[in-house]
Each structure stands twice: as structure tokens, then as C-alpha cells.
Design a protein around this nucleic acid. Structure first.
Lengths: 91, 91, 91, 91
DNA sequence: CATGAAAAAGAAGCGC
DNA sequence: GCGCTTCTTTTTCATG
């Protein structure tokens, strides 16, 4: 059996090691996925509350997205646009 | 000013309340989003580890998806795929 | 047999109609998908040519993306940002 | 000025050539992208029609995907899924 | 080959 | 409840 985990074409102890490891990996992954889902629910609760307070959730999401963009990258991109717009004589 | 939160076209104390609340909502949402991203990173680490152990991450993801699905729905869907394939005379 | 296309549990002429229709739909879809792929190849050729001319393809893609954003929507979004930034006292 | 197209830090005729070429490239790319989008719309229309005829679009997409895949790879992948499931003692 | 970005598919939430 | 949009995930492709 090689390290490449087809888990084992022959029956022996090493397969069990591979299977155990696989099981561990999958269970851990599932746990993390579960936690992610829970956070997603939390987020939705926050948005519901926002809505209940009269705010526009769609707009809030936009704001958050805008705020999440790395400002430096944003500036760089803007600078790039200007450079190329100049070259293309547009705007 | 009404309950509908455009935050306020006129300056008064109530706007401040609205703005504060909005700020709170956004900051909490951002925090949760941050945590979700962190869990996403954790997940990717787990997958990297899996890959390093010789497992096929794509297959692992498929397994996880299969495990997460309602088995009954799964059967129904599979059956429908078979029906359509039969109608098309494929396979 | 209803209009709901499980295509038919019993064998009869109507199924054939459904099967024919299904086959037609799938073949048309596949044709369109094929054409889309071909256009994707065309696009890649254009990018290759650009690269051969010494341009940075990544940057070209960014430019195209920027140009593709609806300017009006862009302005609206910007305005919205400003409104909310003011409310949040940021920047 | 080199062949490397930063388009030119100094003003001269060669830049114009580069700018023209860049403009041409971008416009052609945009045209192709436009056509791709149009085909995407066509595809959606086909799916809408399918739905209107009582078919399950999700299943249709699955069928199309299955038909597009290399059957050998498909078998291998399925086999691997089974292997992993066996290792996990599920199903 | 491995990384990262772009497109497509699938799932979920929102509005009418 | 259904259609529509948005968000997430998956897959593909190009580049190093």
C-alpha cells in the first residue's frame, strides 16, 4: 500500500489507519460546517432584527460589502483604471 | 420622523439613536461574518491535511454532501434521473 | 398522465411526446452550451494575442470588468455609501 | 520604450500604436463577452420552457452534465466514492 | 502541479 | 406559494 489513499486494495491493518484518518477528517469537517451554518443563522437573526428596526437589509449588506473591500486594493484599482482610461481616451 | 429608518432627513436626537443602532447592527454582522470566514479557513486546512494524507478532497466533499442530504429526497431525485435517462434512451 | 412531467408511469403515446420534447430541450441546451464554450475559446485567443503583444491580461480583465459595471448603478451605490458613511460617522 | 506594454511612460508615437491595439483587444473581448451573455440568456429561456412543460430543470442539468463527462473518469470517481463510503461503513 | 481567479450550479431568502 | 434575486459552493481554466 502506498501513501496515496485509495485506502487499500488489500485487507490489512494499514487500511484501518487510513479509514480511521478519513473518518476523523470527515467528522471534523462536518463539525466545522455545522458551526458555519450556525453562524449563518446568527447573521440572519441580526438581519431580521435590523429589518424589525426599520432598516433596509439589502442596503446594509451593500454597506458591509463595501466596507469589506480592502481600501488599499481599492485605491490601486482606481489608479489602474485611470491609467488605462487615459491610454484609451475614455471618459 | 417615522419608524422607517432612512435614519432621518432632519437633524434630531432620534437620528442618533437610529445611527447608533445601525452601527451596532453592522458591527455585529461584520463580526459574525469574520468568524464565518475563519471557520472557512479551518475547513480548508482540514481539506489540505486530507490532501496531504493522500485523500481526494473532491470525493471527500461529495461524501459529506451525500451524508448531509435527506436520503428520501435523494432516492426520489435519483429515480427521476433514471426516468429521464430512460426517456432519452441513454445508458 | 398529468402535465407534470415525470414523463409517465404507464406506456402510451403521451409519454413519447414528453420524451421527444425532453430530448429536444436537452439537445438544444447542449448546442447552446457548445457555442458558449466556443466563444470562451475565442476569448482566450484574444487574451493570448494580448499577452503576445506585451499586455498584462490580468489587468485587461480588470479593465473590462470595470467598464462592464453599469455607471448609473455605480453612481447610485456611491451615493448610498456616502449617505450611510455619514450616518455612521466613518471616514 | 520596450516591447513590454505599460503603454509608455513617455509620450511618443509608439504609445499610440499600443493604445490602439489595446483598445482593439478590449473591444473585441467585450463583444465576445456580450455574445456569451446572450447565449446564457438563450439557455435560461430553454430551461424556462422546460419548466413550463413540467420538467424538472435541476434534473435536466444533471443529465446534461452526465452526458458531458468522460464515462471512464465517471466510473473511476464513482468507484472511489464507494471505496470511501465502505471505509466509513456507511450505506 | 498548484495556486488563484472566473464561471456555473445549487441552495436559500425575499418579495409579490 | 412561486418566481426572482442573492449567496454559497463547486468546477473549470489560466498562470507560474
Amino acid at each position: 500500500m502506498t501513501e496515496e489513499n485509495g485506502i487499500g486494495h488489500n485487507s490489512n491493518r494499514f487500511e484501518d489507519v487510513g479509514a480511521k484518518r478519513l473518518r476523523s477528517i470527515i467528522e471534523r469537517a462536518e463539525r466545522v460546517i455545522e458551526e458555519k451554518k450556525a453562524l449563518g443563522d446568527d447573521l440572519n437573526e441580526i438581519y431580521s432584527e435590523a429589518k424589525g428596526s426599520g432598516f433596509d437589509v439589502k442596503i446594509i449588506k451593500k454597506i458591509i460589502k463595501i466596507r469589506s473591500r480592502d481600501p488599499k486594493k481599492q485605491r490601486e484599482e482606481d489608479a489602474l483604471v485611470e491609467t488605462y482610461k487615459a491610454a484609451l481616451c475614455i471618459d
